[in-house]
Structure formats: C-alpha cells, structure tokens
C-alpha cells in the first residue's frame, strides 16, 4: 500500500498543479492566454518606464535597458519565490475540503504550488527572453544556469513554505505575519536597488539574507554577465536541506494534531 503511494501522489501533484493553473482563468474567453498577456504587459511597462521614460541607469552601465533588465531579472524569480512561500503557508487550510475527506500525503502537498508557480515563472521568463531578443540584448552563456538557480530557490521556498504551513494550522494569524514579513523581506533584498549603493553597515547585515544568494545570482547571469557565486548558492542549498529535514522531523511529531485541527 505504501509502495504505490509515492507514484500515485506524484500524479496527484501534477493534477493539482494543472488545475491550479487552469482554474485561474477558467470561464474566461482567452483562458490560458492571460497567463502570457499579464507578464508581457508587466515586463513592457518596466522596461519602458524605467528605461526610456525615467531614464534610470545602473551604476557603471550605459544601456538604456540596463535597469529594466535588472529589475525584471530580480522581480520575476522573487514573485515565484514569494507566491510559493505564501501559498504553501496556507495550503493545508486552503485544501481543507480535500484533506478532511481523503487521505492526502501532507508533506508533498505544497509541491503542487512549487510546480504551478514554476510554470508561471518559465512562461514569464520565456517572454522576457523574447523581449530581450527584440531589444538586441547580448545574452551571456551563464543564462543556461537559470534552471539550476531556480531549483535552489524553489527548494528553499518549499522548505520555508512547508514549515510555515504546519505552523499556520495552529496559529492562523501567522499567515498575515507571513504576508507582512514577505513585504519587509522584499525591501531587504536588492531587487529595485543595487546592493553596492548601500552603506557598508547595511551590506554587512544584508549578506545574511538567503534570498540575496539567488537574487544576486540572477543579476549576475542576466545583467552583469558573470558566473554567479556558487558559494552562497550552495550555502542556501545546505540551509534548505537542513530545513526540509527539520520540517519532516517536526511533521512526524505534529501530523496527528495537524490532521485533527484542519
């Protein structure tokens, strides 16, 4: 019974992710097309407003598109990250109608969010790359590493989301705290600004921000066209793995209560 559980659950994750993605636009005429239209419009707005209208430039760069690319390269993965963490943190309450009726493997349940957000991410990324192609942006070979960085980022998001998800079952207020926390975290991560403009003190604090590892990796690959720092990335990977292990340990202790409380 337990042996086949893993395979069956995988198809459940895929089915949930698919539904999650389709549901957003179900009933609308353009349907799936909206998931292309939104990011396209957003990216264009950022590029045009910051690049040409406001004339924002990156320090040490002359390209008109430089700041727009910098912003989007950080914002798109950050959005995937935030959505994954936030939605995972409420997944057990959101999917209550299923969990209280059918036996569902709880630790793997947030994976459908990871998957669904990944679809959005890669669609947006594709559009972004398309626009870059049109603007004559020079692509660095390091861009091939984007999926690797993305996997590390989502592993971290899953570890964090799963942890919060368990706690939110007991402490419902926590989901508001998560929302606010993610806002603050956003501003403590160099996404709209550049790390080097910060005072040294702030830099020394921000260096401990795990999100800095992957956000600056995207900046390296897209904007600065250099190899991302694998030291920080592997550090985040290590933290994520430890956190996942801790999550499982905690889950084994709390599973009975979680199922009773949902």
């Amino acid at each position: 019974m337990d042996g086949s559980g893993a395979i069956v659950n995988f198809s459940l994750i895929v089915e949930l992710a698919k539904r999650d993605f389709i549901e957003r636009y179900s009933g609308s005429a353009l349907g799936f097309m909206w998931s292309f239209i939104y990011p396209l419009i957003n990216i264009l707005i950022y590029m045009v407003i910051f690049g040409t209208l406001m004339g924002a430039r990156l320090p040490g760069m002359t390209s008109v598109w430089g700041y727009g690319v910098y912003l989007i390269a950080g914002l798109v993965p950050w959005t995937a990250f935030v959505n994954t963490v936030q939605r995972s943190s409420t997944v057990y309450l959101d999917k209550k109608n299923i969990i209280t009726k059918i036996h569902v493997d709880l630790p793997t349940l947030p994976l459908f969010i990871v998957l669904s957000e990944s679809i959005t991410f890669f669609v947006t990324l594709g559009i972004f790359l398309g626009i870059l192609l049109v603007t004559g942006f020079s692509f660095s070979p390091y861009l091939a590493l984007v999926p690797v960085v993305y996997i590390i980022q989502q592993l971290f998001a899953y570890a964090l989301g799963f942890f919060l998800g368990m706690l939110v079952v007991f402490l419902r207020d926590l989901k508001e705290v998560v929302t606010i926390g993610m806002q603050i975290w956003f501003w403590f991560t160099p996404i709209v600004y550049v790390f080097s403009i910060l005072p040294v003190v702030a830099q020394q604090v921000l260096i401990w921000n795990p999100a800095l590892a992957f956000i600056s990796a995207y900046h390296d690959m897209f904007v600065f066209q250099r190899m991302p720092s694998f030291f920080y990335l592997s550090l985040v990977t290590g933290i994520s793995v430890l956190l996942v292990l801790f999550d499982y340990f905690l889950f084994r202790k709390l599973e009975k209560d979680i199922r009773d409380f949902i």
Partner: peptide
C-alpha cells in the same frame, strides 16, 4: 465528488 470543480 471530493475536489469537484463546478467550472470544469
């Protein structure tokens, strides 16, 4: 009918 979605 668990997980039935009316729109689908």
């Amino acid at each position: 009918g668990t997980g039935f979605n009316a729109e689908m």
